[in-house]
Computed example of a mutant assay.
Amino acid sequence: MELGITKEKAKDLLDEYVKDPIIKLHMIESEAIMRALAEKFYKEEEPAVTEAMADEWGIIGLLHDIDWEMVKDNPAEHCVRAQEILRNNGASEFLIETIVSHVYGMEIIPAFKDKVRNSKIQHCLVAAETLTGLIVASALMQPDKKLASVSLESLKKKFKSKNFAARCNRDLILECEKADVPLDEFLALGLKALQNISGKLGL
């Protein structure tokens, strides 16, 4: 898997293009869940391979909304501008396609509304970045507003409650199953991934 962008370069791009702390945290959260997924899928490999794959999957999560601040007032351009940013910074076509795939099928983005996700990593990205919203919303509902106070059982109930964090599309989260990750396992993996970086997130 050739990305064309290193972990260090990805962090530089994040700092250059993302100033809003909420968006930046969302991208860091997405990175964490993508890393956890890679560690699951490649756990039988040599440790160096597992770590390398976690880095690469993490980069995809970290950069997936790289253009959002530029286009938030014109969402039809979301991921259209991202392609330009990434290509101009040496990203491989694989990295670009994987990142833009998280908006495939969205009517609001004409350039991608007729496209469909067709790979494990594409399904994982859209599921992971959507799950972050559900987990963070669950944490903010706790008396202490801490991720440590969110239980897996509580998160499962929140997932089933369509009125809770209604903007977190459950169908997109369920794409984890298209990557052969059962929903309950995915919720547990995502929750643990964010709890592990709770200090960085301030939650």
Rank of each mutant, 00 (worst) to 15 (best):
V18M: 05
C176N: 12
L203G: 03
L14E: 08
V181A: 05
V100S: 07
V136C: 01
C124I: 04
P182H: 10
C124W: 00
K178N: 13
A128L: 07
D184W: 01
E45A: 15
A48G: 02
K192W: 00
C168R: 12
N74V: 11
R35V: 03
T132A: 04
L86E: 05
L189F: 01
I28T: 06
H78C: 04
A193R: 04
M141L: 13
Y104D: 09
G199I: 04
E46W: 04
V80W: 04
D144Y: 02
L134W: 02
P182E: 06
N163Q: 11
E16K: 15
F94G: 01
D180I: 00
E69H: 06
A166Q: 10
G61E: 05
F159K: 09
A193Q: 03
A128T: 07
N74A: 13
M1I: 08
A179I: 07
A166G: 01
A179D: 08
S198F: 01
D73I: 01
E39N: 11
T98V: 15
S154Q: 15
S161K: 14
L25C: 07
C176A: 13
Y42R: 02
V181M: 11
P75R: 15
E175Q: 14
I22F: 10
I121A: 09
L183P: 10
G61H: 05
G190K: 06
S198Y: 00
L140R: 13
